[in-house]
Design a protein around this nucleic acid. Structure first.
Lengths: 345, 345
DNA sequence: GTTAGCACTCTCTTATATTGAGTGCTAAAA
DNA sequence: TTTTAGCACTCAATATAAGAGAGTGCTAAC
């Protein structure tokens, strides 16, 4: 059987209607609301064909039809027309980036908030990943006799700092010496290039207090590792899911919200997104079982050419793909642009 | 009418049963399960009295009774016996504080997590408040030609840092001078004692580049203000509320979860808690409308003698007060003890 | 003062129509 | 050959009715 123009029209009408109403769509509804110039009986025949081809499903005999995942896939890839942003949406985003926010992380977090506000979908982002960022400067700043702050300044003005414990008997001059050593070793390297074994050579270089040194080196190691790892997740609008008719029963809500509490899993899901542009992952295309009734729309954000992280939007499979994709596209570009302007190298 | 010993016994039995079953308790149930040596008819009479006195309520004529807020209040203040922790609970808490966590904030966050894990109630905490902490040392650490890190080290090894923008033409020597100035001005003061006007005297002291200075002073001001303000909230186990039979309908769940997303409101609620020991706030005693069916159990945590923040636990008014209060008490003390040992002055 | 007994109340459950949206098939019309 | 009107059939959702069950309140006897 062939998917001719009329079948596509009927399918598009049904998807469109279902996205709006969340109710199975019947042949009469299509005939009345969408003037395709054919009667409900003809539409019924087409619908029957479309079901046979796997684009439509019937909850039960006497109900209308709902689109299958295959239908949504076709819709997203071929059928839907990506709208441009409404005035209100564009204005909202513009306002966000007119604020002068200095913390890079804060910018991303605010982006997630706006995304969720505009779309009413749950929004999420991977915190900026620094693995590929080069280190410009390392400094140990003495805090008191027991603690020092290990400040790592990276290219792009981003910095990571960690509190580390220093053994007794190490003075400020000494910390400065170590700072110099760390700079010599790691300047212009990325976090992932850091050779932690090189740290142990501190022992040889400053061959005093051997014993105390071990814990100090361990602390430095920990500090640098922590600087590299950044699995934070920003999440907003989780309760938005309660607005959708498909989430009106507790077990579903629970499974969704539980997943949103699992930052590790969200991290993995978002981190697996690669490549350019907006990606849409529908229902069971998602890697995680609990997302089988959801769609995930993602895009990466960048600083210059470098991918820093991913932003995403989660809603029911019956989501407004057209609007969601256009907002996501616009947002990811605006964010990248803003970051590059502010922190660009 | 007087609340004699037998009435108290009956009331206690009903509260106890209702906390466990979440079902209205009838006279026969009390007679059978709790051997008070009186018949169901007598219990019925007592229950009728207790209702008249405002301790019990009847959902409808042919249902059993449920405790009123007044009953819970009495129960918490007088009737309940505070249990000691189970072996499992004590062990769990012990393990937490055997970990060596260096970041003070992280300790508090982990505490909230454990609290929610142990009790299965939603747990929440106010991030450590630094307003009353004295400043020990301030340092401007140059980051690159445009940015510097304003590091404020407080008593107790806690530190706050903020990225600030520096005007062109200010070199490292100069930053050092400013650091020295800031130290002279603000050392041994608390954040709330900082006189921001004093900052403007920098202009007179370094009477060069007058124009550039204005933005620099503004940035410093912002940085110090940010150091003082810390309205962060740690929240864990929000989905636990879905386990309770009273939260099986979506509107209730929505109102609860929406409140949990309002960090500002949670901040105000927790911040209004003062004084020593564990506090219990039942139903409409809570300041917020959406908590009218919830109870909030709170305690402050300290560093030495200084109150740093508040931890809290939220559940339905029908909560296991006895267990909740004992866990909260134990937890707040353990946290304070741990913090004082690690950061104590 | 306490308790057995019993009528009464009200929710909750189960069983039984009834309704209505929607389909699939058939036969006639285009 | 394609389209369409017509109609019987299906099935969830809604409404209605009957029954069961839990619990109370009252009365009268202990």
């Amino acid at each position: 059987m062939e998917l001719d123009a009329r079948k596509l029209q009927v399918l598009q009408a049904i998807i469109h209607d279902y996205i709006i109403t969340a109710e199975p769509v019947g042949s009469r509804t299509v005939a009345k609301k969408y003037n395709l110039g054919i009667s409900s009986a003809t539409i019924r025949n087409e619908m029957s064909d479309l079901e046979e081809m796997g684009f439509l499903e019937q909850p039960h005999t006497s109900a209308g039809r709902i689109p299958s995942e295959k239908a949504y896939r076709l819709y997203v890839d071929k059928l839907m027309q990506v709208r441009s942003l409404s005035h209100h949406e564009a204005e909202y985003i513009k306002q966000l980036y007119e604020l002068k926010i200095l913390q890079l992380e804060e910018v991303v977090y605010q982006t997630v908030k706006v995304l969720s506000d505009i779309t009413n979908y749950t929004s999420v982002a991977l915190a900026p990943q620094f693995n590929e960022i080069t280190i410009k400067h390392i400094q140990l700043v003495p805090v008191d006799k027991d603690f020092a702050l290990l400040v790592v300044v990276t290219s792009s003005g981003i910095l990571k700092d960690t509190l580390i414990q220093i053994p007794k008997g190490i003075d400020n001059d000494f910390l400065q010496k170590v700072s110099n050593f760390l700079n010599e070793q790691f300047r212009n390297k990325t976090f992932s290039e850091i050779d932690l074994d090189a740290l142990s050579s501190i022992r040889q270089i400053f061959n005093e207090n051997q014993r105390l040194f071990n814990t100090f080196v361990d602390e430095l190691t920990r500090g640098l590792q922590e600087g590299a790892r950044d699995k934070e997740i920003y999440l907003e609008g989780t309760t938005n899911i309660l607005n959708f008719p498909e989430y009106q029963d507790i077990p579903r809500v629970r499974s969704f919200l539980s997943l949103m509490e699992e930052k590790d899993i969200l991290y993995r899901i978002l981190n697996s997104v690669k490549g350019n542009g907006v990606k849409v992952s529908i229902g069971t295309e998602n890697p995680h079982e609990d997302l089988k009734d959801c769609s995930l729309i993602t895009a990466t954000y960048r600083l210059g050419e470098r991918v820093l992280g991913t932003i995403g939007m989660i809603g029911p499979t019956r989501m407004e793909y057209s609007r969601a994709v256009s907002v996501m596209d616009h947002m990811a570009k605006a964010l990248s642009c803003y970051l590059t302007k502010l922190y660009g190298e």
